Structures are given as structure tokens and as C-alpha cells.
Amino acid sequence: MPAQFCPTPCALDDLELLLNGGFAPQTNFDDEGPIRLALPAELADEAEIEIVDPEGLPLATWTPGGLTPLSAPSYGPFRRLHLDPTSARAQHAGALTVPVAAALTDDDLAAIQEAREGRDVVLLAFVGSGTPQDISPVGLVRASLAAAELLGNAYVVAATLAAHGDPEADHELGQRVAANYASGDVLAVTGSGELPIEIAGIVDTDQPEEPGVVVFFTGLSGSGKSTLAQALLDLVLEAGQRTVTSLDGDVVRRNLSAGLTFSKADRETNIRRIGWVAAEIARHRGIAICSPIAPFDETRQQVRAMVEAAGGEFVLVHVATPLEECERRDRKGLYAKARAGEIPEFTGISSPYEEPTDAAVRVDTTGRTIEDALGDVLAVLPFDL
């Protein structure tokens, strides 16, 4: 059996277009270039890999020589609109195709009406990771459906064109995908002008003013992470303006991560689980307050990436209380046990703590009241209390 691998959302979007002809004539991932399959080191020498979705459904088998489809994605909002290019051309023969990466404006709609010359219109919504501008992928489809209603005899087709961080390459890929989906002319719109009322309402609903936030406290055991996190939680609840969830490291370990050890690998797994849950909370505009030790920079960076990919803001708080003070407090007796060799791989004693260099704020709680130390945190939060 080939090794299984779940790639990034961008690579999964690329896979769909490689398999359905959207990227034709290209049918496999590049060794170089934007459409790449970034394999982890342990899979780099594999000759065959089974690509799976986040739920483990096999989508395709990859080899350096090509991709073999195993199944097609069948879930997700507006999946019925995700046509392959052959089907889109057959269903909308002769239509004017308009690539859409942002909500269409009054000027865009006027330009489309002028250019269509009585033809049907296909609004080709580019819904891949990072492509929709100032709107979510689902919001882009909803806004495009509203635009189609305003245009009349217009239809929406969704294509998973993702952004790869190279504007020039992404522009070329967008042109290629549009050409493959179009059965007739292609019209590019400018995005100038105002949004029609019907579309503006969808955009406003899709993009509330306040994004989700993850406040991530990191520091040694006994540094004051949980105390500060609890104090912040209380303030948010008292304000009553935002939904908020606490993800305390010890509580998560007893529930979501029950059964994990304190090995480096299991500790990193615990932090990634916290990060995933926090990112989902942020995706839905909530506030997540996390307070694990999180000693390793690589794992903290992974959590930051998860949160930012979900559209949330990540606030890293380094509770930098010195080891000597943490050990003096030792409310749970953990440092004493670690010194006696009863707890292996204990952070700060027998396992390292990698101090963050990218924290939004550094707080030493030594000799300070909770209110005083929390003031440092409140000063860097992207929301008011």
C-alpha cells in the first residue's frame, strides 16, 4: 500500500484542477513552479503516494509520472457548481465567460451587459484558497449568484483556483483556467464602482467587521499563563460582546488529548490539536484563549499558520516569568518531582523551552498583581474590553 498524505488546502485545490482539466495541458504537480506537492521529509523518497482529503478519503495516486484519480470531492457548499471544464463548455456553449475573484460591482455588471450581445453569461468564480478578494469562497459564490440574478440568463460555475503567493504566476494560471472553461469569449472586469445593494448585503454578512482572534499564552509551568488567561476570559465574558472559549493546556490534555504522553512528539500533537480547535473558533469570529506551555517554536508557528489560514488574528503572549520564580511557586510540586527524576522531559528542567522571538508582548509576572500584568496583554489585543 502506498503511503498516504493530506496536502495543504492550496495543493488540494490544485489537485482538483489537475484532475478535471482546469490546468490543461498540465496534468501533474511541478517539480518547480507554483503547482507543487510539498512532501514532508519522511515521504520525499516515496515513488508512489496516495493523496487523501482531511477526512482521509483517497483522492488520487501520485507518482512522478502522473496522477491517477481515485475519487472526486463530493462535499462542501455549492459543490453542484464545481463543474469540470468539459461539462461547463457543454452546458454553456457560446456563453460569455467572466472570471470572478471579487464581488461584482455596478460597473462590472454594466460592462458584462454591454459585452454579452444577447449571449448567456458564465460567472466563473475562483474559489480556491487565498484567491477571493475581501470575501470568503462561499461568500464569493453567493455574491456571484446574486449578480447572475441581476444580469439574467447568467450562470455560476466554481473553479478551485488557489493563490500561490506569486501574483504573476497566479495571473497566468487564472488566464489558463478561464480559457479551459470558456466555450466562447472571456471578459475581464475591473472591480471599479460600487456594489449593488443586493451584493453589498451578502458581502457585509460574509465579512463582519470583527475577525476571530486567538490569544495564545506560552511560558513555563508556573509562569502565570493560566492565571492571566482566566483573568482575560473573565473580562471578555463580563463585556458580553464576543463569544469566547478557553483552551487551557491541562484541561485539553485531560479531554481532547487523553492518552498522550509527555514525549516531545505527543506534546507537539497536543499543541497542534489546541491550534486546530482555536483556528476553527476564529474561523467563526469567536475568541479563543489558549494557555499551554507550547515550548517549541516550530509548533507555535504551525498554530499561527492554522489561525491565519482560517482568517483569524493570532496574538502570541510570552509569559516570561523566570525559571527560578516558577520553581519557587511550584504549586503542583512538579518541579520538585522533575528535579528528583520522577518526571522525564519536563520543560525548563530536562527539556528545553524555546523562547519566542515573534511574541506580541512579553510579560514577566514576578512581583506583580494579576491586573497589572494583564494590562500588558490588553494593550496588544485587536479588540477592546
Rank of each mutant, 00 (worst) to 15 (best):
S136H: 04
V252S: 09
G240W: 11
P85K: 06
K337H: 07
V252Q: 05
V307G: 02
T357W: 00
T245P: 00
L237F: 07
L83N: 03
E42R: 14
E16P: 00
G367F: 10
R242S: 13
Q241K: 15
F78T: 00
D30C: 14
P211I: 04
P85H: 08
L15W: 08
E308G: 10
A320S: 15
P211D: 08
P2S: 14
P54G: 10
E55S: 14
E198F: 07
A278S: 15
P132C: 05
G367M: 13
D248F: 07
G222M: 04
V100N: 05
G341S: 12
D234G: 09
D106C: 09
E324W: 00
E42C: 03
N20Q: 12
E324N: 08
S246W: 13
V244C: 15
S226C: 11
R331V: 15
L59Y: 05
A44Q: 14
S350D: 12
L145C: 08
T261I: 01
N28K: 12
Q301D: 10
A340H: 09
L109H: 07
L235Y: 02
C290D: 04
F5R: 06
C10N: 02
L67C: 11
D248S: 12
H318M: 06
G76N: 09
D14E: 10
A102V: 02
A231E: 13
L237N: 13
R242E: 10
R329W: 11
S71H: 06
I112E: 03
V100C: 09
V252N: 06
S223F: 04
D330I: 09
V157I: 13
L140R: 01
P292Y: 06
T105F: 06
R328T: 13
D106E: 15
G33Q: 04
F262H: 15
A373V: 12
E325F: 01
R331S: 13
H164V: 05
S74L: 01
D204Q: 15
A103G: 08
A320W: 01
L233D: 13
P295T: 11
D45T: 14
S223T: 07
V319D: 05
R283P: 00
G259E: 12
E198V: 12
T8R: 11
V121G: 01
D170I: 05
L70Y: 01
V377E: 03
L83A: 10
R273H: 13
N153C: 05
A169L: 02
L150T: 11
I281Q: 10
N255F: 07
V186Y: 03
S183I: 03
Q301N: 14
A88P: 08
G286T: 07
V251E: 14
F383R: 02
D376S: 12
A258V: 14
